[in-house]
Simulated scan of single mutants.
Amino acid sequence: MEFITAILFFLLSLGLLGSHGKSKPSLILYRVSIFCVLVISILTIGQYFLSNLQNINATFEPDTLASNFQRKTPLATAICFLLIGVSILGIQSKSKKVKSIINGLIFITWVINFIAIIIFILNIPSKNADFLIPIPIHSSLIFFFYSGFLLFKNDSKTLNELIFGNYTGSNLIKSSGPFVFGMIMIMGLVLIYLINNEQVDVNVGLIIYSIIAVVFSLTNIFVVAIQLNRSDQEKIIYENALHASIKEIKQYKEALDSCSLVDITDMNGTIISVNDKFCEISKYDRKELIGKTHRVINSGHHSKEFYADLWHEIKTEKSGLGTLK
């Protein structure tokens, strides 16, 4: 790892730690660290487009045996530092629009380094892959986990629901994700092995790879589709049963309301709901009863002890039996 790359990772960590603090020193540490990351990243990127800029790595690591280009921090690495630095600057924002932009920048960084890791795992020769994602594997791994942590920190609720939730989309990721990724990696490794050992031609290998990938993809799609259809069928059955139960309960309620006085109270005896029959017999409007206790309709026929015993029975046994006048 280049010295400047190590310094930038250190500054990013300082900035991230400082962003959690509320004191003035923490705020200063946060801003200065991220500012340094952004400046160094921009200067490093500028080296690839402006020939008159001095190589930063050469400043910190003078090496007469290495060429100026060889000592440069890879362009993709500098871009990742820039994206992460900007993301940490905006990660504390309360704006949903800013958070969405930050999530996009972090996700781009995650994808770039995911590709770099895949290139390393598949053992693609540097001369064939450097033009794509020329990031050293140790830097890629740090960026991969760093960006994953920031992505989780910035939108933990959405990611928790997506990865650990029991929703259809979450189950799809958990069931199909490992299968698709595993098959792509295995087929890629086999293809590269066969090509490197000159057992198959590149064109033939790509055709075989494509055919197998299509077959496995279609198989996975059909399996997932069958599972989703079964889930929907079960859902329809449960919904129909629920609608039938609701309809039956509604019929019971209509029968009860037509012949009985029904009121609902909280644990303190305050009326929170009454039916039409209750209003009709008591001669009170619904608005006059809700929020009051039964004292408002107390005829005086029963003693206080009667009501006390009735309420005690209701609270302890969840029901009470008696005749009110």
Results as ranks from 00 to 15, higher is better:
residue 174 K to S: 11
residue 174 K to L: 01
residue 174 K to M: 04
residue 174 K to N: 01
residue 175 S to I: 07
residue 175 S to H: 05
residue 176 S to C: 10
residue 176 S to N: 04
residue 177 G to L: 14
residue 179 F to I: 10
residue 179 F to E: 02
residue 181 F to H: 12
residue 182 G to E: 09
residue 184 I to P: 09
residue 185 M to W: 11
residue 186 I to A: 13
residue 187 M to R: 11
residue 187 M to E: 09
residue 187 M to H: 08
residue 187 M to W: 09
residue 188 G to R: 05
residue 189 L to C: 03
residue 189 L to M: 15
residue 189 L to D: 03
residue 189 L to V: 02
residue 190 V to G: 06
residue 192 I to T: 07
residue 192 I to F: 15
residue 194 L to P: 05
residue 196 N to M: 11
residue 197 N to V: 02
residue 198 E to M: 03
residue 201 D to M: 02
residue 202 V to W: 07
residue 203 N to R: 04
residue 207 I to T: 12
residue 207 I to G: 13
residue 207 I to L: 14
residue 208 I to F: 14
residue 208 I to T: 15
residue 209 Y to D: 04
residue 209 Y to L: 03
residue 211 I to K: 10
residue 211 I to A: 06
residue 213 A to C: 10
residue 214 V to K: 07
residue 214 V to P: 01
residue 215 V to Y: 15
residue 217 S to I: 05
residue 218 L to W: 14
residue 218 L to V: 07
residue 221 I to A: 08
residue 221 I to Y: 13
residue 221 I to F: 06
residue 222 F to G: 07
residue 223 V to N: 12
residue 223 V to W: 12
residue 223 V to P: 05
residue 224 V to M: 09
residue 224 V to D: 03
residue 226 I to A: 03
residue 226 I to G: 04
residue 227 Q to K: 07
residue 227 Q to P: 02
residue 228 L to I: 11
residue 230 R to D: 00
residue 232 D to G: 01
residue 233 Q to S: 07
residue 233 Q to D: 09
residue 234 E to M: 05
residue 235 K to R: 12
residue 236 I to E: 00
residue 236 I to S: 05
residue 236 I to K: 11
residue 239 E to I: 00
residue 239 E to L: 08
residue 239 E to A: 03
residue 239 E to Y: 08
residue 239 E to R: 12
